[in-house]
Design a protein around this nucleic acid. Structure first.
Length: 824
RNA sequence: GGGCCCGUGGUCUAGUGGUUAUGACGUUGCCCUUACAAGGCGAAGUUCACCAGUUCGAUCCUGGUCGGGCCCACCA
């Protein structure tokens, strides 16, 4: 067969992606009896572009899934998109130049849905297909569709029934930009420039008015000041006990109190407490039963408490108040500082604390259980577990699940207009939108009132996406669901262990008292060449589609397989070249092999009825020693690769197979068997058949072991020839190669052959001779017997192009295995 | 302040209680060898961050130092 000289990755990748889809190669088989391997695929957020980090971690999970599939398992590999919540809102607001809060909720929701449907989702999903992902694309969900809304609302109702969901007025973390409460996990640190301002409070001390200097970064909160604190051991301020301080500009008095949480080292050792400046302020408010003063409105403006500063923004009020303080000589110093503040991870706005009525999931009492749940998961790599533990130990808030937003899953809740009784939706009517729908009951069970107020809030997106195992599994028929859940694997990157992984475990345990999966595999991040995280704001982002266009998906995957699971990897374009070279080498070696296998039918021993490639050809009666050598080497590689893959160490499989293919198979084996392949008249038909068997078996095995990593090129080569004998519809549903009995003796002899071949090559290279230059004499010494040497003699002569070869024994106690002298 | 990870030829990395310490990219020499010249085959290059300890022996184990990254906390 005449094969094209070059492999065209662009055509090939598209061709095979279409083939896989058309032939349903990756389709989950609900009727199969095979062991099920189910994956809780991460649903990517549609509102962003796919970035290299996605490509990196999604291909890594795909390696594992493809391997499991070739082991013969029935793969349940769904694909979803996460498109509800603030990210979508922000994108739609930006592209359509509108504001959600200025239009009716259902109208805005419809706009979001339309935009998703028509503009965002189709091209987005296409990007994932181009990576060569082997998902069953028909098992599809979007976190905003009815299916997900129903499951999410049902989850809420169930949690309410077991008294885990509760509603309470409390101080919550608030984003003034998004105008919603947020949860602990959505906060991020940001270092900002600020000033530490020394402000004068007055205290009446024995009839005299004295100055108290208090340092603060937030003078705009003066109107909400409720107390002044000092440390109980701070000698300077003991005399202030029981006195009152007068707040500057606002001229009201607050108590001066002692509390160990006041740091004597910080500022002047005096601190003002305002509800709600930060978390300590809230603790003080509770501990000392201080009044609640709200200075800030939900949209980040000053309240009427601020007097003449009312309606100004926080920033402006800060500026104005400082100016006024300075004018009144009440601000006597400013020290520029850099300090970390909490910002909302979606928009970067500084977090405020606001008193409001919200829904929570009660779980702070479960910390011990959470640690146990985490310990029951199989973590790959193991050390990622500590991130989970660390997060659990640091939890301080119950999970705030209500969001004062527009596009999301609504709470299935109404309130009695008169008595505020909570009315849940009927479970059979889910999903509901309380803004449009009516509750099932006609009157309040408590007060008989007939009017209800709908809950306007929507659920936190994580309240829905933490249900992805149930969401995916419930897309199948009921009898299967127990087999699919708990799932086999959760793959994801390490940045969302505290968001998605943690929340999913919590929900699964609260609902079903089991972990949602057995294994978790955690991928690392892609860094820029200088080792920094890639992010839009830094402008160092590389788009995977560019990489695929310039190189190929297989190259990208080969690159992603080059680092250990969980490791971060700096992206350097030159590293993609390696994969391309590998593809070229694989193509050329296959071209050579297929050329010499054209007449090889292999007398297959058995054929699989299911079309799974397990019909290995019969072993020829006589196998040459070099062929037994390569097959033994191959078996060892198969064994180690299989073990590595089972432990999610795909990078090791890749490295082992790559090395075996290039340096053992191509550099040596192919060179050694050429003589037998090309010259059956000289070496005999049997010797040729033996070489063909070795060549066929080792190359097919290499292709199969590389198939999870480079699915396109391996499929292409498989179909060019190997399929005719191996009989699988696709290499990806062919059987993973099996190791065979090792032939230790042949392996030793093979080492001698390789030694001679490599030395001869080195000899010629050092003398600047062409590799085809004939050699006159080779004197070999080794610990092998004369007969053992003789069994490989013809192959050594042919591969080194030597006229005469002599062999002698090496001393028993010699430290080296072989010795060689070469004469030209 | 706490936790986790990491520090191996110029660059990125593999790895193990005893190896001539992987491999790739880069550098360099040679070779049109009947698979492979936008290629192949050779060669050079690493005191395995530093210091101490355990050990017959440490790049690998322990402790410390320095440096880098990530996460969490604080954030008046």
């Amino acid at each position: 067969m005449q094969l094209p000289d070059k492999y065209n990755s662009k055509d090939s990748e598209q061709k095979w992606q279409e083939f896989w889809q058309k032939e349903n190669i990756y389709k989950f088989n609900p009727d199969s009896k095979a062991e099920i391997y189910s994956i809780d695929t991460p649903p990517p957020t549609v509102s962003g572009k796919m970035h290299l980090g996605h490509a990196f971690s999604y291909t890594q999970q795909d390696f594992v899934v493809r391997f499991q599939r070739m082991l013969g398992k029935n793969i349940f590999y769904p694909f979803g998109t996460d498109d509800n919540g603030i990210p979508t809102e922000r994108l739609v607001e930006k592209t359509k130049k509108i504001k959600a809060r200025n239009m009716p909720r259902d109208q805005f929701a419809k706009l979001c849905l339309d935009t998703l449907e028509k503009e965002l989702r189709p091209t987005y999903i296409q990007d994932w297909k181009k990576l060569g992902m082997s998902c069953d694309w028909d098992i599809y969900y979007t976190t905003i569709n009815e299916h997900c809304q129903r499951i999410s609302q049902k989850s809420f109702i169930d949690l309410f029934k077991i008294k885990r969901a509760y509603r309470k007025k409390a101080a919550v973390m608030w984003c003034p930009e998004c105008q919603t409460g947020i949860s602990q996990v959505e906060c991020q640190d940001k270092i900002l420039d600020s000033f530490f301002n020394d402000i004068i409070f007055k205290v009446n001390s024995n009839g005299k008015e004295e100055d108290l200097i208090i340092a603060t970064t937030r003078p705009e909160l003066l109107p909400a000041c409720v107390a002044v604190f000092y440390h109980p051991d701070d000698k300077r301020y003991q005399k202030l006990k029981g006195k009152k301080a007068k707040v500057p500009l606002f001229d009201f008095e607050v108590p001066i109190l002692a509390d160990p949480r006041a740091d004597p080292e910080k500022g002047t050792g005096l601190v003002m407490c305002c509800t709600f400046g930060d978390q300590t302020d809230m603790e003080w408010q509770k501990a000392h039963n201080l009044p609640i003063k709200e200075a800030i409105t939900p949209d980040g403006k000053m309240t009427k408490l601020a007097g003449k500063y009312e309606t100004h923004s926080i920033q402006t009020a800060r500026k104005l108040i400082l100016e006024d303080l300075k004018d009144a000589r009440l601000c006597i110093g400013q020290e520029p500082i850099k300090h970390a503040v909490n910002v909302h991870e979606r928009c970067g706005t500084e977090i405020e604390f606001l008193n409001s009525k919200q829904w929570f999931i009660k779980y702070l009492d479960l910390k011990e259980d959470m640690l146990e749940w985490g310990a029951k998961l199989n973590w790959y790599p193991q050390h990622m577990k500590s991130r989970y533990d660390h997060w659990v130990k640091g939890l301080q808030w119950d999970w705030l699940i209500s969001r004062q937003r527009y596009f999301g899953v609504p709470f299935p809740v109404w309130y009695c207009t008169k008595c505020d009784e909570i009315i849940l939706a009927d479970e059979n009517s889910l999903p509901v939108d309380p803004l449009k729908d009516k509750p099932a009951i006609k009157e309040c069970p408590k007060c008989k009132c007939k009017e209800f107020t709908p809950e306007k809030d929507v659920l936190d997106t994580w309240a829905t996406s933490s249900l992805t195992p149930q969401i995916a599994v419930e897309l199948t028929k009921k009898e299967l669901q127990n087999k699919l859940y708990p799932m086999s694997l959760r793959p994801q990157a390490h940045d969302i262990i505290t968001f998605w992984l943690f929340n999913t475990v919590v929900k699964s345990q609260l609902h079903n008292k089991v972990n949602p999966w057995k294994d978790v595999m955690i991928s690392g991040h892609v860094l820029d060449p200088s080792g920094k995280k890639m992010s839009k704001s830094k402008g160092n982002v590389i788009e995977p589609q560019e990489v695929i266009n310039k190189f190929s998906a297989d190259c990208l995957r080969f690159w992603a397989a080059g680092c250990k699971l969980g490791d971060d990897l700096p992206y350097m374009e030159k590293d993609l070249v390696t994969g391309q070279k590998f593809i070229t080498k694989l193509w050329n070696a296959s071209k050579f092999a297929i050329m010499h296998l054209e007449d090889y039918k292999g007398e297959t021993s058995e054929q699989s009825s299911e079309g799974l490639g397990n019909s290995f050809p019969k072993k020829p009666k006589k196998l040459e020693v070099v062929d037994r050598w390569i097959l033994t080497r191959l078996s060892k590689i198969i064994k180690s690769s299989t073990e590595s893959f089972n432990k999610y160490e795909y990078s090791r499989t890749k490295a082992d197979v790559e090395n075996f293919f290039w340096h053992e198979l191509c550099d040596n084996y192919l060179e050694i068997i050429k003589d037998r392949l090309y010259n059956p008249d000289k070496r005999g038909k049997e010797a040729r058949l033996s070489a063909q068997y070795g060549l066929y078996t080792s190359l097919l095995s290499i292709l199969k072991m590389m198939a999870p990593i480079m699915p396109h090129i391996t499929e292409e080569i498989y179909h060019l020839h190997f399929k005719n004998i191996d009989h699988a519809k696709s290499i990806h549903i062919a059987n993973w190669p099996k190791e065979e009995k090792l032939d230790e003796k042949a392996e030793k002899i093979g080492e001698l052959v390789v030694f001679a071949v490599e030395k001869a090559r080195q000899f010629k290279s050092e003398k600047s001779l062409s590799l085809k230059t004939p050699l006159k004499n080779i004197f070999l010494k080794g610990k092998l017997s004369k007969e053992e040497f003789e069994s490989a003699k013809d192959d050594i002569i042919a591969a080194t192009k030597t006229e005469n070869i002599a062999y002698g024994p090496l001393k028993e106690n010699s430290e080296i295995d072989f010795e060689i002298e070469i004469e030209i």
